[in-house]
Amino acid sequence: MIFPLADINVHQQGVTEITPPGHCLVTGTGPDGRLRMFLYQGPAPADAGLCGSVVLPEPDRFIAGHPFTAHAPDGARVPGKTQSPELMLAHLAGLAAAARKTP
Results as ranks from 00 to 15, higher is better:
Thr82Ile: 08
Met37Asn: 03
Asp32Met: 02
Gly94Phe: 04
Lys81Gly: 14
Ala97Arg: 07
Gly94Ile: 05
Asn9Thr: 06
Ala70Pro: 00
Ala96Glu: 09
Ala44Pro: 06
Pro20Ser: 01
Thr69Asp: 15
Gly30Ala: 01
Phe62Cys: 12
Gly28Trp: 06
Met1Val: 09
Cys24Met: 11
Cys51His: 08
Gln13Phe: 04
Asp60Asn: 14
Leu92Cys: 01
Ala6Trp: 01
Lys81His: 15
Val55Asp: 03
Ala64Ile: 11
Pro59Ser: 08
Pro4His: 10
Glu58Gly: 09
Val10Glu: 12
Lys81Thr: 14
Gly75Leu: 05
Pro4Trp: 01
Ala98Leu: 13
Thr19Phe: 04
Pro67Ser: 13
Ala72Gly: 07
Ile63Asn: 05
Ala72Leu: 12
Phe3Ala: 00
Asn9Leu: 13
Met37Val: 02
Cys51Met: 07
Leu25Cys: 00
Cys24Ile: 06
Gly28Pro: 11
Ser53Ala: 12
Val78Ser: 02
Ile8Phe: 03
Gly49Glu: 09
Val54Gly: 02
Arg77Pro: 00
Leu25His: 03
Arg100Cys: 01
Ile2Ser: 11
Lys101Tyr: 11
Phe62Lys: 10
Ile2Arg: 09
Gln83Phe: 09
Leu35Ser: 03
Leu25Gly: 07
Gly65His: 11
Val15His: 01
Leu5Glu: 07
Ala70Asn: 07
Thr19Met: 07
Gly33Asp: 00
Ala97Met: 10
Pro20Met: 10
Gly30Lys: 02
Pro79Phe: 14
Val26Ala: 05
Gly75Pro: 04
Gly94Ala: 05
Pro20Gly: 04
Pro4Glu: 10
Ala76Lys: 11
Thr69Leu: 13
Pro20Val: 02
Cys51Asp: 09
Gly14Val: 04
Ser84Phe: 04
Phe38Thr: 07
Thr29Asp: 13
Ala90Ile: 08
Arg77Val: 12
Ser84Val: 09
Leu39Asn: 08
Gln13Lys: 01
Val26His: 08
Thr102Tyr: 13
Gly30Cys: 06
Asp74Trp: 02
Leu87Lys: 13
Pro31Glu: 15
Thr29Leu: 14
Pro67Met: 10
Gly14Met: 00
Ala44Phe: 05
Glu17Cys: 01
Gly22Asn: 10
Leu5Ile: 10
His66Met: 14
Ala98Asp: 14
Ala76Ser: 13
Leu35Asp: 06
Asp74Ile: 06
Ala70Cys: 02
Glu58Val: 03
Leu87Gln: 14
